[in-house]
Design a protein around this nucleic acid. Structure first.
Lengths: 203, 203
DNA sequence: CGTCTAAACATAGCATTGCTATGTAATGTG
DNA sequence: CACATTACATAGCAATGCTATGTTTAGACG
């Protein structure tokens, strides 16, 4: 057992796939390896075929998303942070809409099923902090609210990026989150201010 | 100018495509025409290729969705109706998840761009009725609220049907819509009751 | 009614796709 | 240093969407 795979090649192929996706060029086996110097067989030794490559690409999308959410600078106002996380989610999805679409394509299961959980975790922690400082009622189901916030973001960005709604529709995110948070006990005026602060951080 | 296309063939091919989608079999040109008696050229005379067939299939999905929403029996309680429309939306998407995915696939534009508007119209009318009878404040932007309700439904069903959330997550729809409607001025207790009534009509 | 014509339709074959079979080169191990 | 095992390259296969070409059919017109 001797020759070992080069992780750099693996990353290269995934990056090249994301690049083709971004350029809206057809993602074919031969197009991927073109220019990389490696042969088509590399896709099979590293990913066991195109399916595996799609799988890995999907995983990479979630990894980038989680990194993006983790990079959001947290403040003393967890409700603001929640809105900021939502805005970062939308921003990430719109920055690479094609990668985003692959992420939510079935047929390619994730290598690490917990990757998607990373997205929820960021939201979950913010919700729990909001409960801790008394912004949300103590009987609020943190996981439920985190999931609902995710659904708001995903629904909007999905209808805009791959659906029939204009980009302007993303502005609905703020009032939707506000309604959600007020329903969890936050003071309406305070909530509106927090969401406004967090929501408009991203372009 | 003489021989005219047979609309039945057109419908047949679309139906066969939806059927392959439902059976999770690969939707290939030859698989579509197999068993129909027509040749592969039919796809080109009727749809100008596979792209056109996907386009038409996407359109068919929206048509069915709008029909499904239109079949929801309305009541004197427009807030209940809104929840019922949301439940019907989820029910329709889960009944044919593959057709639903095609509907929100870019790359295939709709033949009739107004088809997606039909979905919104049903919601819009319910919102306006709710305003008329004073359940929602008069300054509520009906189109905005309809869009937001759509985003809630789409976000949830999308995360469940083609994403990482379990089917159980659909239950979040009721509290999310409730929060939205209360934010529009509906009385909390009345709203909860209305949403509960409408939401649980569909399986 | 007969004829002509344009469209619907069938058949065959093309380039490209993902994939596999086969052969070669390279590298860690003993 | 030899060897075994894996990475990697090349060639070719079945299947895909599509097109070129020929045939059939249905409506318009005298």
């Amino acid at each position: 057992m001797v020759r070992t795979k080069d992780p750099a090649v693996r990353a290269l192929l995934i990056e090249r796939t994301a690049q083709l996706l971004r350029a809206r060029e057809p993602v074919t086996l031969r197009a991927i390896v073109a220019g990389t110097g490696v042969s088509t067989m590399a896709v099979y030794t590293y990913f066991d075929g195109m399916n595996g490559l799609w799988q890995a690409t999907r995983q990479e999308g979630f990894t980038r998303l989680t990194a993006r959410l983790g990079a959001v600078t947290l403040s003393a106002d967890p409700v603001r942070d929640l809105a900021a996380l939502g805005a970062a989610y939308l921003s990430n999805a719109l920055a690479n809409p094609d990668l985003y679409r692959v992420m939510f394509d079935v047929g390619f299961e994730l290598e690490d099923p917990a990757a998607a959980d990373g997205t929820l975790d960021c939201l979950l922690r913010a919700v729990e902090r909001a409960k801790d400082i008394g912004r949300f009622r103590s009987d609020v189901d943190a996981l439920a609210l985190a999931t609902q916030s995710w659904a708001v973001g995903h629904g909007l960005v999905s209808l805009v990026a791959t659906g029939p709604l204009p980009r302007q529709a993303l502005d609905h995110g703020a009032p939707m989150l506000t309604a959600l948070f007020i329903g969890c006990g936050d003071d309406p005026d305070t909530c509106r201010r927090s969401v406004r602060l967090g929501w408009h951080l991203e372009p």
